[in-house]
Computed example of a mutant assay.
Amino acid sequence: MSTTHANVHEAVAAARNAREEAERALRLSRRRRADAALALEHDLYPMRIDEAERARRRRVVADADADVAVHSEALLRARAVEDAASALAAAVSGTDFAEKAVASTVVSLLGGPASAAPVSRSRVETASVRRAPRAARRPGNRPLPA
Score class of each variant (00 low, 15 high):
91 A>F: 13
39 A>W: 10
131 R>V: 09
47 M>S: 09
55 A>V: 10
31 R>Q: 15
37 A>F: 07
114 A>Y: 01
26 L>K: 05
126 T>G: 04
83 D>E: 15
115 S>Q: 12
58 R>V: 05
89 A>K: 03
116 A>D: 07
136 A>I: 00
26 L>T: 00
140 G>S: 13
93 S>R: 01
136 A>C: 00
128 S>I: 04
135 A>Y: 06
68 V>P: 02
67 D>F: 02
36 A>D: 03
82 E>N: 06
76 L>C: 04
85 A>H: 04
68 V>A: 02
86 S>A: 10
107 V>E: 09
110 L>S: 07
50 D>M: 00
93 S>D: 14
80 A>I: 05
47 M>Y: 12
91 A>N: 14
82 E>Y: 08
88 L>C: 12
26 L>E: 06
115 S>G: 06
115 S>C: 06
38 L>S: 13
128 S>P: 01
124 V>H: 15
59 R>I: 06
62 A>M: 04
134 R>K: 14
100 K>T: 03
32 R>P: 05
122 S>Q: 08
110 L>T: 06
89 A>R: 14
33 R>N: 02
81 V>C: 09
34 A>R: 07
135 A>I: 00
58 R>K: 13
53 E>S: 09
107 V>I: 13
107 V>P: 04
33 R>K: 07
127 A>G: 10
94 G>S: 14
44 L>S: 10
138 R>P: 01
84 A>P: 00
116 A>Y: 11
135 A>K: 02
81 V>D: 15
109 L>S: 11
78 A>K: 04
64 A>V: 06
52 A>P: 03
44 L>R: 13
105 T>L: 14
74 A>M: 08
76 L>T: 05
58 R>W: 02
102 V>S: 10
139 P>C: 08
50 D>Y: 05
60 V>Y: 05
33 R>Q: 02
130 R>K: 07
72 S>D: 03
104 S>C: 14
94 G>L: 11
82 E>Q: 09
68 V>Y: 04
63 D>L: 00
44 L>W: 02
133 P>H: 11
40 L>F: 10
71 H>G: 06
106 V>K: 08
68 V>K: 03
56 R>H: 03
112 G>K: 09
98 A>I: 14
44 L>M: 05
32 R>E: 11
131 R>A: 10
46 P>G: 05
107 V>K: 03
60 V>M: 06
61 V>Q: 02
127 A>Q: 10
61 V>Y: 04
28 L>Y: 08
132 A>I: 09
130 R>G: 06
